[in-house]
Nucleic acid binder design. Structure first.
Lengths: 139, 139
DNA sequence: GTAACTGCAAAATATTTGCATCCTT
DNA sequence: AAGGATGCAAATATTTTGCAGTTAC
């Protein structure tokens, strides 16, 4: 198993296909920033739109990637760094959206602080998205 | 100025029209939870889709309402409680999305905690969205 | 061989733009 | 009267669904 994509797919009981390996490789190459469906589509021409949607869905369910909420109406995804299993995501890190270059990054070292919920509310997931100017654009 | 909707529109230099007053009234009535475009459309039949989009945009720009990030591909909006002016939103409260009833609520009393950004990152906005089961659905 | 995966067509949903008309100020 | 707001048509973008054909195991 020299190729990590094959390894990851097999570990998650997913068939090893060319399209999935390519999508996974894209995520591995873009470790720093999140990818939108359109990013993948333009990088991997020849791969059907629908297949990409279904692959992203499968990867999310398996805990290989996680989705990042955004206000611009397009879903973004990034690799899970560990601790995510079948149906359970444990990505407690903060996401950063740069208003200048438009990239979305996982700040793996910044974890989401605890917040006390009001009486009666049961929290199962907490998302934190910071917008501003990223370190690359500040330079 | 007995009607608050007229007051709000005038204060923000927006023409007082029937459609805008109705949309604003809807937000005033649903103070607790956020509204999607489709919620407004189904409540105010007869009002054009496009007009609703443009009204939501105008209200957001004026600081009357604010948008709430979500992963489901439909924008949500809620009234600003104060401190929001032309182009500057200061809604530092946490939003709660109920996975059972689907509603999005503003937890006005829970403010977003401070998080230190890594070197080089400049934060201008911080969003926090908690998912789980709301107090109404827990009962 | 069988179940899983893919591609194509089509539909559903969300949002934007242009323009002519109407209404608020 | 003038500028802003609305309605309608149409275009664009995003995502989902159905189904037949193909591929992985």
């Amino acid at each position: 198993m020299q190729d990590p994509t094959i390894d990851i797919l097999k570990r998650n009981n997913l068939s090893v296909t060319e399209g999935r390996r390519n999508i996974l490789q894209l995520f591995l190459n873009h470790n720093a920033s999140a990818l939108r469906h359109s990013d993948i589509e333009s990088s991997l021409h020849g791969l059907d739109r629908v297949t990409i949607y279904r692959t992203l869905q499968a990867f999310t369910e398996k805990g290989i990637i996680h989705s990042i909420p955004g206000s611009d109406g397009a879903a973004r995804y990034a690799l899970c760094k560990g601790g995510c299993e079948q149906g359970h995501h444990h990505d407690d890190h903060v996401h950063f959206v740069c208003v200048r270059c438009g990239s979305t990054q996982c700040l793996d070292d910044v974890h989401v602080p605890y917040v006390r919920m009001p009486e009666g509310f049961e929290a199962t997931k907490v998302e934190m998205v910071v917008s501003g100017i990223c370190s690359k654009c500040r330079k």
